[in-house]
Design a protein around this nucleic acid. Sequence first.
DNA 1: CTAAATTAAGTAACTGGTTACGCAAATGTA
DNA 2: TACATTTGCGTAACCAGTTACTTAATTTAG
Lengths: 167, 167
Amino acid sequence: MRNQLLNLGLMEDFLIHMEYEGLTSRLKRLSDALLYSTKDLYKSKGLDIEPNWNLIFRLLQEHQAMTITEMADTLQFSHPAVVKIVKKMKRNGYIATQEDDSDKRKQVLSLTPKAHKHIAVFKPYWEAGTEVTRDILADSPHFMEELARIEEKLNEANYKERTLKKL
Amino acid sequence: MRNQLLNLGLMEDFLIHMEYEGLTSRLKRLSDALLYSTKDLYKSKGLDIEPNWNLIFRLLQEHQAMTITEMADTLQFSHPAVVKIVKKMKRNGYIATQEDDSDKRKQVLSLTPKAHKHIAVFKPYWEAGTEVTRDILADSPHFMEELARIEEKLNEANYKERTLKKL
DNA sequence: CTAAATTAAGTAACTGGTTACGCAAATGTA
DNA sequence: TACATTTGCGTAACCAGTTACTTAATTTAG
């Protein structure tokens, strides 16, 4: 692919060429590439996990038990996103739910024994992935910090609000 | 939402707390936020465009005429992604297609007169958006450059390949 | 010159998010 | 204490991408 582009003289990458106007699409393109590559990895290794499950596992390791809403708030995901992820993890036997007895609307989630056992198997893969992320960021030393600053700014006022103010 | 988190003492943002392990999810979260906010903006202003259309408009302004495959290569998107975007833009009357007469498989795409006329209307919105991106990146001076470096590395070897090598 | 391989582009099925909506439970208030 | 509001969470419909497959046209090779 890259060779094709080189041959075509298109190597400059149009999205990069677009500078600020191309940023949103580049972020999407990058996050999709990471997502599909991760799925591909898990599949090729026959691992019974999906991207993002590591977040839930970690969350429940650190907090013991949480509700859907707490998870959504903590991850800053919409709650239906968490519902979907958790539903699959439940189906695969990694998460148990229990109705909160002081508030019957709440589903208290926790890790099953199976989860604790399998985490040991998954861990090396997650760690290898983390290692790769570290490598990829090796000559981008400000990236994480500057990303956090961007997230912070967008939490204060989102893209739409900011753009409306410019018009 | 942010206030809720503050009240809950969850303000640290778990994904940031996860450091390298949280990066992929943060990129997804950020690009989704930008995407939906942009859609919301266009909708609220009654604009007959969607995110990414600016890319296609720009591409066809700079190259006059291109095929689906050329666009996909230039943007580094999959070709079905381009097919989908172009289909909608065609339906809305912004793109015309003509069969290449030296190669009947190819669809040569170009902007319609309507497109040229409406681009003038859309332009201020795109420019305001670009301005906002500039603002958001104002105290992240290395971000674009370091993002490019990351993209470059992942073009050389993707996440899966790199992770397999670590195992 | 014909058969095999490649290429262009459209379609189908899937994915991991989103917003919008509905219902039941809990909370606040007159 | 009852009624309005808020909250938790599940579902539906949508969205912008992906991979996998198909078909037709072109190119390559024997």
